[in-house]
């Protein structure tokens, strides 16, 4: 259920940046997620949704903002840890057309 504050942690290994999100991806996620992304440089970006329980339509727009910034910088974005429900939402919103979604972290990181 919604109501968990958003947080994000950045891991960077071998040029792959992983943004580990926890809590709800909604309006409150925009500023911390953009700040976390802006603090990274270099190669691919992997979004970890394993500890995300809720995403609303504003949160989808936040994710697309990150996707657009990364693509403008020539950085590939991949994702893992989405529930089946949110995988379907990513298909409805057509984010899945531009961001490969994987079942687990190892596959997502290795895909680059």
């Amino acid at each position: 259920m919604p109501g968990t504050a958003f947080d994000v942690r950045v891991d960077e290994i071998d040029g792959v940046v992983t943004l580990r999100m926890t809590g709800d991806v909604n309006r409150g996620a925009q500023e911390p997620l953009e700040r976390a992304y802006s603090g990274t440089t270099g190669g691919s970006v992997v979004l970890d949704f394993s500890d995300v329980d809720y995403i609303n339509s504003t949160g989808i727009a936040v994710i697309v903002g990150i996707l657009a910034m990364a693509r403008a910088a020539g950085r590939e974005v991949r994702a893992f840890g989405l529930t089946d429900h949110y995988r379907q939402i990513f298909q409805i919103t057509r984010i899945a057309d531009f961001m490969a979604i994987y079942d687990d972290e190892n596959t997502a990181v290795a895909a680059g």
Binding site: Y54, H85, Q88, R94, I95
Partner: peptide, 29 residues
């Protein structure tokens, strides 16, 4: 919990008038 908040997945819009029915939905990308 939020399934009812989201539209179901559709390949193309079935309903709608001129320039709508039969069209796919487009995100910014």
């Amino acid at each position: 919990a939020d399934k009812a908040n989201w539209a179901p997945h559709v390949e193309r819009l079935a309903a709608g008038g001129v320039n709508v029915g039969g069209r796919r939905l487009n995100g910014p990308q």
